[in-house]
């Protein structure tokens, strides 16, 4: 900012980075905000809620696994379009997606969340936590809804959300990375772009810190998902083995 070296070039690079990641995000976000806006009045009726609640546990688990798997395909496409991701070795691409794809889904969920009604877009309409009762994971569902609500309260723009999603996905502290330094460089670059966009959008000073705090909440949600899946698999090994999407099983070790 003092004009000594090449801040203009850096700013231009950061702007470019922001544009690229925002474009990748918008191309792969599954639903546009306008589409979600148009569907925002569509809430499940009481008899529809009861119909979900009366599904056998394994049927509801399978339905949610299918929905998560659909969303994951979009996250994989997002990752592929992040500048530098495909230059990482294949091991590290897999490691980052295995560890980060569900975290990105939870981040993206705030776009599909209605804070006023405490509902999320699921299976064609907006659903409250009670819709997921048959899963037998009320505590996890409640935490996921709380997380979405707290993300919503930050009122992130699409470019901020895009950069934060990329930052989460490019976490350099994941176990089993082979070229940690390469991932670190990409994550640092993404963090700079995130800082840049927050400044440009004149956001409050503490927002980056608040976002960094969300990272540990995301990790906790994902490890709890893994625990719930293990518990479910212990009771229904055949259902997981034969009826769950193969991609879901690959990612979550089911």
């Amino acid at each position: 900012s003092n004009g000594d070296t090449s801040p203009t070039v850096s700013m231009a690079e950061l702007d470019h980075q922001v544009q690229l990641i925002s474009k990748s995000h918008l191309e792969t976000c599954q639903y546009l905000r306008e589409e979600l806006q148009q569907m925002s009045w569509q809430n499940f009726l009481q008899d529809e809620v009861e119909s979900y609640q009366s599904k056998p546990r394994e049927v509801m688990w399978q339905l949610c696994a299918v929905k998560i798997t659909e969303a994951i395909q979009y996250v994989v496409e997002f990752a592929k379009r992040i500048d530098g991701f495909m230059d990482l070795c294949q091991n590290d691409q897999i490691v980052l997606l295995k560890a980060g794809s569900l975290e990105v889904i939870f981040v993206r969920m705030c776009r599909m969340f209605d804070s006023q009604n405490n509902t999320v877009f699921f299976d064609g309409k907006f659903a409250g936590p009670d819709v997921f009762r048959a899963l037998g994971c009320d505590d996890l569902i409640s935490s996921v809804f709380d997380f979405a609500k707290s993300m919503c309260s930050l009122h992130l723009s699409e470019d901020e959300l895009a950069l934060f999603s990329a930052f989460v996905l490019l976490s350099a502290d994941r176990s089993w990375l082979q070229e940690k330094l390469q991932v670190e460089k990409l994550q640092q670059k993404t963090q700079l772009a995130l800082q840049h966009v927050l400044q440009k959008n004149q956001r409050e000073d503490g927002l980056l810190h608040k976002l960094r705090c969300k990272v540990s909440a995301l990790r906790s949600l994902c490890s709890r998902h893994t625990e719930k899946l293990s518990a479910f698999r212990a009771v229904y090994p055949d259902i997981v083995g034969t009826h769950f999407p193969p991609l879901y099983k690959e990612l979550f070790g089911a």
Binding site: T69, Q73, V76, K80, Q90, Q93, P245, P246, E250
Partner: peptide
């Protein structure tokens, strides 16, 4: 690679009409 066959396919395809 065999363990993450679908993920490999998704990463390699330019678009991903993989049958899941």
């Amino acid at each position: 690679k065999e363990k993450h066959k679908i993920l490999h396919q998704l990463l390699q395809n330019s678009t991903s009409p993989v049958d899941l």
